[in-house]
């Protein structure tokens, strides 16, 4: 028998379960690693939980946090609800908030930290506003309380344009030029694999329904601390929009990450950990 090297499995485990979202049972996929304070990670629009794989293999994180990333319904390895074939997917603020709360309830998570990127970075601000006592802290990566769309969403789902190619083509400019090519392309691969119309449906929340700059000032950071971190090269949640959001949320902390784009955890994990580890340390202490 040949002398095989033993497999070095990553410490990430993935499982499925069925939870109720908006009255419908949906089979969802969840990955986790580590032990300690629950850290729920919310992926960007049109992608899935694989974006957080580097945090899940970093002992500096997993020694203290139980890192949990689930694929939103319709994304990654999670199913859409039964009957999806006749629906147009469109994420709203209420549906997104209810989905994250349903997930935390189903997993019986007590006082978790929730960290989201892009649309995930937006919904964590809504959670801090509406449910400040349920979360130990929220971390908004590339998240702001108001954004302006800069491309026509109709191009994302039509029969004469490949949805995966055009989604990756749109967001490739959201990866900083400094990021390693290996991780740039892995980040874009996730976009190429999204279901038809899903990125577009997510952006309905991100660019249309989720604005709340009129209410974000009501977030009580003494009950739920808010950390905002955005990449220098982000063209949607720009450093300026992040700082404007931070100015409205009294007591929040804002960091602009030089040399990073819209996908810090997946496009440049080595650089991102320099910014996120101090935040996690602060939340722990």
């Amino acid at each position: 028998m040949p002398d095989f090297e033993p497999i070095k499995f990553e410490p990430i485990t993935g499982r499925y379960f069925t939870m109720n979202v908006d009255g419908d049972p949906v089979r969802v996929y969840v990955e986790e690693a580590g032990a300690g304070t629950p850290l729920v990670c919310l992926h960007t629009a049109g992608s899935d939980g694989r974006q957080f794989r580097h945090l899940m293999t970093d002992p500096a994180v997993t020694d203290h946090f139980r890192v949990i990333a689930f694929d939103m319904p319709w994304h990654g390895k999670s199913n859409p609800p039964v009957g999806w074939e006749d629906q147009e997917y469109q994420l709203t603020t209420d549906l997104y908030r209810d989905t994250v709360l349903a997930f935390c309830d189903a997993m019986a998570l007590e006082n978790p930290v929730v960290m989201g990127c892009s649309m995930g970075g937006r919904i964590v601000l809504h959670l801090a506003l509406d449910h400040p006592d349920r979360f130990k802290a929220v971390i908004a990566l590339e998240g702001a309380d108001r954004l302006e769309g800069y491309y026509d969403l109709e191009w994302l789902h039509r029969p004469d344009v490949h949805g995966g190619e055009v989604a990756a083509g749109f967001v490739s400019g959201q990866v900083a030029p400094q990021s390693p090519d290996e991780f740039r392309w892995e980040t874009l691969w996730h976009y190429m694999q999204g279901g038809p119309g899903i990125f577009k449906g997510d952006l309905h929340f991100y660019w249309v329904d989720g604005h709340f700059d009129d209410r974000s000032a009501k977030i009580d950071t003494s009950r739920c601390p808010v950390y905002l971190l955005s990449g220098e090269y982000d063209s949607s949640c720009t450093p300026e929009r992040t700082e404007a959001t931070a100015a409205r949320i009294k007591g929040s902390s804002a960091t602009v990450m030089p040399g990073i784009g819209h996908f810090p955890m997946s496009e440049n994990p080595a650089l991102f950990r320099e910014f996120i580890l101090p935040v996690l340390e602060k939340i722990r202490s």
């Binding site: 800069y150 491309y151 749109f170 400019g173 220098e232 090269y233 063209s235």
Partner: peptide
């Protein structure tokens, strides 16, 4: 930034 990609330049 804002010069690194066509869509960033459009934005």
């Amino acid at each position: 930034r804002d010069y690194h990609d066509l869509f960033s330049m459009f934005a």
